[in-house]
Design a protein around this nucleic acid. Structure first.
Length: 786
RNA sequence: GGGUUGUUAGCUCAGCUGGCUAGAGCACCUCGUUUACACCGAGGGGGUCGGGGGUUCGAAUCCCUCACAACCCACCA
């Protein structure tokens, strides 16, 4: 017997993976005339190691890839990694801090070298983990968001958007993180409730409240609702002198409807430079904006004696000074306030006004379906008209809500790791600024002007990953030719022509806005195509207790590489999809892994039995004639289940597909058909059934099925991964129904035997015709059956 | 403040557009070693499908309402 008693995954998995990879089975071929199936792998951040979440998406996408490959399609599953600008930057800065240095001390070049070293190390680990999960992706097309080809695409889109007036540069209030010294987009800010002190101060004739006294130095506008009766006697534009933190200031009354009269005293002072809402009020009334806190989080000279202090240090001192001046009216110690933090690095966000690059989402200059539309409108249109389907569909509502509230996308970052903005600036002696935007640096020189200098900022990571479905399909050699336009590049790249739009994007719902929406935005704009037709959104994997896996509870985190050696990759894969529906989170369960390890063993033992029953010789592919009712039944079941599993896989219902497979293999094949075959002389159908359950199970459990295939079948039979999906074979319905009847009778007989107290109600060894005889006469129970 | 989801067996969850005695895995109980498998086999117990109301011949499934839980978005100085 070639198959050992138990399946030990660790003995085979690495070799099987190598076998697949070297065979070229993963490699797509744009020159064939087969139907295409393409998926772009969401590129993991090069920040370290892969998590269970990665294991889940690798499993889901691998199931699609393997299934469609078996269905005879030309499959492209394109792998890659993301430079993850902000996330990586945060890690490197943290390391530098631990070493007692800073990025400014070592300089931009050394910092980037350091970063490259880190990411290349991360990448190696991560690619190894993808292989360990069995990912059948096309390694010959491995991409990285900072590859020259992808960077070219980034530059092309930036320049195109700039020339269309979609990208502009302006002073706007942004979410500034003083720790990482960069701004972040609205979506990267997370809020958490914290209890802080809430102070009410006297401001001339008014009482105003704040949780942030340190921003109040330059406050010189007091704002109230125009209809607030309490302040009827003050008119918009009235000025008055008021004693304030560092002496008297002239204040102006502003009436604005955004003020809520029911909150506090209904009057407030504003700090336009450091508050989103205040900024908007100031814009409406053309008010002055004064910076109070610098970009490192320290108070500026406007704070007088407090200049140079950090916020934490200055706040109590300022309150004390105001109290001493008799301006503090009251302090509410239990004020619950939402604190904004950068989700990377958790630095507290300090709104700041800065010169940044933005994408205008409302300008109607995008050609889509024959009309000029705004980016927002295109985003809405493709979902509304069904060009792209979200699974589950309920996320469409969330998506539309997000778009309704979407503001211009701030794409510039002040970190060093990432794509440099393709813009160059120079100034003349008067300080007049000239800006050039282009793919390559400008070379001209002009008298009286300084030399061109590239914009110091980098692009938001999502700007480059938004191009992922197609920037990865551009031919790298063509991309070196700058005489070609973006349209030329796309038209001449065989991969783009063959594989775009991709069929499906499979990713987590948590990056619906970050990534999915932005891919739609950039891809429709740049290529005129949608990036994908279907979006399958999986849920998050939580710890076994239902709580989030988090770094603060290290014991809650399950590492896929701890599971694989013990249970096998197949068991892990199936555990991750078992009973899981799109968009819903799942809890990790060791029980599920065990159940699926057992399932692998069941497959293994069906194969072992078949090997023993048939002897050595087996050649898959032929369809033998059914001999017994059991044969007819097994073939009918095989046909039915193949159809069902197909139907589920075609509609992305992985869990249901898997469940049918599981019960077909275990309940039908192992428990009934294998037993029935023991009383049969011809077992060719058994061999055929084995061959086909290996095919059905292969997308879910690729390693054990290929191991069996390689062990049992000869070299000429090739690889299971590149074989073909079961062909449906018709069987005799009546004979199959006869076996159903026999099953029912046997079950009944077992029950009766049990009821009679006979100790061995086993019927495994009786022949099928004998069962029928027994059942039909039913008068006695021959000794031989016991 | 707006929105989404969930509440089904002891536990974790399936159950698509309403339809056969409501399912799975794990756990539990009984019996069992047989041409593969104890990572096993044969069987069994266990559910007012969150509460209430409605539509229907028929509802876990549709509608209303209440309760509890989780999450997302917005955000008040």
């Amino acid at each position: 017997m070639r198959l050992p008693k138990t399946y030990e995954p660790g003995q085979y998995e690495a070799d099987i993976y190598t076998l697949w990879e070297q065979s070229g089975a993963f490699t797509a071929d744009p020159t064939t005339d087969k139907e295409r199936f393409s998926v772009a792998m969401p590129p993991p951040n090069e920040t370290g190691t892969l998590s269970l979440g990665h294991a889940l998406f690798l499993t889901l996408q691998d199931i699609m890839a393997r299934y469609n490959r078996l269905r005879g399609k030309d499959v492209l599953w394109l792998p890659g990694t993301d430079h993850a600008a902000l996330a990586v930057n945060a890690i490197i800065e943290k390391k530098l801090t631990e070493e007692g240095t800073t990025k400014h001390e070592i300089g931009r070049d050394a910092f980037l070298d350091r970063t490259r070293e880190f990411v290349s190390q991360s990448r190696g680990i991560m690619l190894g983990q993808m292989r360990a999960m069995g990912a059948s992706c096309d390694w010959s097309r491995l991409k990285y968001t900072l590859d020259p080809t992808l960077s070219r695409a980034v530059g092309e889109v930036f320049v195109k958007m700039y020339s269309d007036g979609l990208i502009y540069r302006g002073h706007r209030i942004v979410n500034w993180d003083p720790n990482l010294e960069t701004n972040v987009s609205d979506d990267e800010v997370e809020y958490a409730e914290e209890t802080t002190s809430f102070y009410t101060f006297r401001f001339g004739p008014f009482e105003i409240s704040t949780a942030r006294p340190e921003t109040k130095f330059a406050d010189k506008y007091v704002v109230m609702h125009p209809d607030d009766k309490r302040y009827k006697k003050y008119k918009h534009g009235d000025t008055f002198e008021v004693e304030w933190i560092n002496g008297p200031v002239i204040a102006t009354v502003i009436k604005d409807k955004s003020v809520d009269p029911s909150f506090g005293t209904g009057a407030m002072t504003i700090t336009p430079w450091h508050s989103m809402v205040d900024f908007e009020i100031a814009e409406r009334h053309s008010l002055d904006k004064v910076q109070v806190i610098d970009f490192h989080g320290k108070l500026l000279p406007v704070a007088g004696e407090f200049a140079g202090m950090g916020i934490a240090e200055a706040r109590p001192k300022i309150v004390e000074k105001l109290r001493a001046k008799g301006l503090l009216i009251k302090t509410d110690e239990n004020y619950v306030h939402n604190i904004a933090r950068n989700e990377r690095g958790k630095g507290i966000i300090e709104p700041q006004v800065r010169l940044q690059w933005f994408i205008d989402v409302n300008k109607q200059v995008v050609e889509w379906k024959g009309e000029k539309r705004s980016l927002k409108e295109v985003l809405q249109n493709v979902i509304r008209e069904g060009d792209i389907q979200l699974l589950p569909t309920r996320f469409e509502k969330t998506y539309f809500h997000w778009i309704d509230n979407l503001r211009d996308w701030c794409i510039s970052r002040q970190i060093w790791w990432g794509h440099r903005i393709p813009a160059w600036h120079r100034t003349d002696t008067d300080g007049t600024l000239e800006t050039y935007v282009g793919l390559q640096p400008p070379t001209d020189e002009r008298e009286g002007w300084n030399e061109w200098e590239q914009d110091a900022d980098t692009l938001d990571t999502w700007f480059s990953s938004a191009l992922w479905t197609w920037s990865t399909l551009i031919d790298p050699t063509l991309a070196e030719d700058y005489s070609l336009s973006l349209q030329d590049l796309l038209a001449k790249s065989p991969d783009f022509q063959a594989y775009h739009p991709t069929n499906v994007l499979e990713t987590g719902w948590d990056i619906l806005f970050f990534w999915v929406a932005r891919m739609i935005l950039s891809t429709t704009y740049a290529t005129g195509q949608v990036p994908f037709k279907t979006v399958y959104l999986h849920g998050l994997i939580r710890a076994e207790d239902g709580k989030k896996m988090s770094k603060s509870r290290p014991e809650s985190i399950i590492d896929p590489l701890d599971v694989i050696p013990k249970y096998g990759t197949d068991a892990l894969r199936m555990a991750l999809i078992m009973g899981v529906t799109p968009g819903n989170d799942q809890n990790w369960g060791w029980g599920k892994v065990e159940a699926n390890r057992n399932f692998c063993n069941k497959l293994w033992n069906i194969a072992r039995y078949t090997e023993g029953a048939l002897g050595d010789v087996h050649k898959p592919g032929g369809i033998p004639d059914p001999q017994s009712t059991a044969d007819h039944w097994a073939l009918q079941k095989l046909q039915q289940e193949t159809k069902i599993i197909e139907g589920y896989l075609d509609t992305y219902r992985f869990s249901e597909a898997y469940e049918h497979l599981y019960h077909f293999v275990w309940d039908n094949v192992a428990d009934w058909y294998v037993e029935a075959s023991k009383s049969q002389e011809s077992r060719e159908v058994l061999g055929y059934v084995l061959e086909n359950i290996l095919k059905l199970a292969h997308p879910f459990a690729p390693f054990v099925t290929e191991t069996i295939w390689q062990t049992l079948y000869s070299d000429t039979d090739g690889l299971l991964i590149t074989s073909s999906w079961p062909k449906v074979r018709r069987s005799n319905k009546e004979k199959a129904a006869d076996f159903e009847e026999i099953k029912a009778i046997v079950t009944e007989v077992r029950a009766v035997t049990r009821a009679l107290g006979l100790s061995k109600p086993s019927l495994y060894y009786t022949s099928v015709p004998f069962w029928r005889k027994t059942a039909s006469c039913c008068s006695g129970w021959p000794d031989s059956a016991a």
